[in-house]
Computed example of a mutant assay.
Amino acid sequence: MTTNENTNENTNGIELAPNAALLVIDVQKGFDDASYWGPRNNPAAEANISALMDAWQESGRPVVLVQHASRPGSVLAADQPGYAFKDFVADRVGQESLLVTKTVNSSFYGTPDLAAWLTAQGIGQLVVSGIQTNMCVETTARMAGNLGYDVLVPLDATHTFDLAGPDGLGLTADQLAAATAVNLHGGHFARVVTTARLLAASGAPARVTA
């Protein structure tokens, strides 16, 4: 893997490589089914993902779309309407986008091979956004960190859902997102940042919903 050392330095402390790749993970219509998933957090996630996609395309940086094909019976199964990308993502698909299809949490276990594509493009810096914060986003970010990529995660360009655990234990979506931020930062897998900081680093206007 080769890291492009020509970076865009700025006053907010983030340096973005000209070929930093934006990963947009599993932003699919099936996640709008509240009866299936339960309560979610961060209603600004979609607006922030939109702003990042626009900034990346305006600056000529690569965008990688990841789509989850879940088990039969799931709202994300390939034969279900929920498998489709949300409209704001589908409307922004460009010729420069790579589409990765996966059946597990990590975007590095999909088709085509994400790591091979990144290596071929000389990309060493990744910005990881999408759904769910504590599932596919966190898993992909952890694996990317293990593989040696410079990983940034704009937590406000992700969202997740309340989740039940063993013996009556449960965490809210906000608690899970906070845990992801601590895991990624404390474990040195990634830098947790905001969409506004990334937009500033990219040179794009701060089109972000608080």
Rank of each mutant, 00 (worst) to 15 (best):
M1W: 07
M1F: 13
T2C: 01
N4D: 15
E5D: 12
T7L: 15
N8D: 08
E9A: 14
T11N: 11
A20W: 00
A20Y: 01
L23V: 08
I25A: 07
D26A: 12
Q28A: 12
K29I: 09
N41R: 10
N42H: 08
N42K: 03
P43T: 11
P43R: 13
A47E: 11
N48A: 10
S50H: 12
L52K: 08
L52Y: 01
M53V: 13
D54A: 15
D54H: 08
S59Y: 02
P62C: 10
P62K: 12
Q67P: 01
Q67G: 04
A69T: 03
A77V: 04
A78V: 13
D79W: 05
Q80H: 12
F85A: 10
D87Y: 11
V93A: 14
V93F: 04
G94S: 15
E96Q: 13
L98S: 03
L98W: 08
T101R: 15
V104S: 08
F108M: 03
G110S: 07
P112T: 05
P112R: 12
D113Q: 09
A115N: 14
A116Y: 00
W117Q: 11
L118V: 07
T119I: 08
T119W: 06
A120W: 03
A120G: 12
G122Y: 11
I123V: 15
L126G: 10
V128D: 01
V128A: 11
G130W: 07
I131H: 07
M135Y: 07
V137Q: 03
E138H: 05
T139G: 02
T139S: 12
A141D: 07
R142K: 13
R142D: 02
V151H: 09
V151T: 05
L152S: 08
L152W: 04
V153R: 00
L155I: 14
A157L: 09
A157S: 14
H159W: 15
D162C: 10
L163E: 12
A164Y: 07
D167S: 10
G168Y: 05
G170Q: 15
L171G: 01
Q175E: 15
Q175Y: 07
A179E: 01
T180K: 08
V182A: 15
N183F: 05
N183M: 08
H185P: 00
G186C: 07
G186M: 08
G187H: 12
F189E: 01
A190P: 00
R191H: 14
R191Y: 08
V193K: 00
V193F: 09
A196N: 04
A201Q: 11
S202N: 15
G203H: 01
P205T: 03
A206W: 00
V208L: 02
V208M: 04
